[in-house]
């Protein structure tokens, strides 16, 4: 183990997690083999990708799509498959073909 893990005296009783939604700190983006590439110019912010994303990875601002959270996106491709825009506003591209973020 690289960093020191907390000892029992440092932990909450019965393992209660006091910080709600701290899974946000856990990166699952590395699971991805395909990356969704978003074309802002085609996107109508219909929000279909957002409602069906299993990973809360469609980022919104004021109810409009502003991008994809690659820290958490696992690359399932539902967003691209369900995008109703003609010619698709999201495409899946193999990670190997993507530039490193």
């Amino acid at each position: 183990m690289s960093k020191k893990e907390p000892g029992w005296k440092d932990l909450t009783m019965s393992g209660i997690i006091e910080e709600a939604g701290n899974a946000q700190k856990f990166e699952t983006g590395s699971w991805r083999s395909d990356r969704p590439i978003w074309d802002k110019s085609k996107c109508t912010s219909c929000l279909i990708c957002w409602i069906y994303c299993p990973d809360s990875a469609i980022m919104l601002k004021d109810g409009k799509m502003v991008g994809i959270d690659l820290q958490h996106c696992k690359g399932c491709g539902i967003c691209a498959a369900e995008c109703p825009v003609k010619g698709k506003a999201i495409h899946m591209v193999p990670e190997s073909e993507c530039e490193l973020v």
């Binding site: 939604g21 856990f26 990973d55």
Partner: peptide, 18 residues
């Protein structure tokens, strides 16, 4: 429901919860 959970890619369950 935050991201960073460990459900499989493409899992319907977490979108139901959301």
């Amino acid at each position: 429901l935050s991201g960073g959970h460990r459900a499989c890619a493409g899992c319907a369950m977490t979108s139901i919860v959301r």
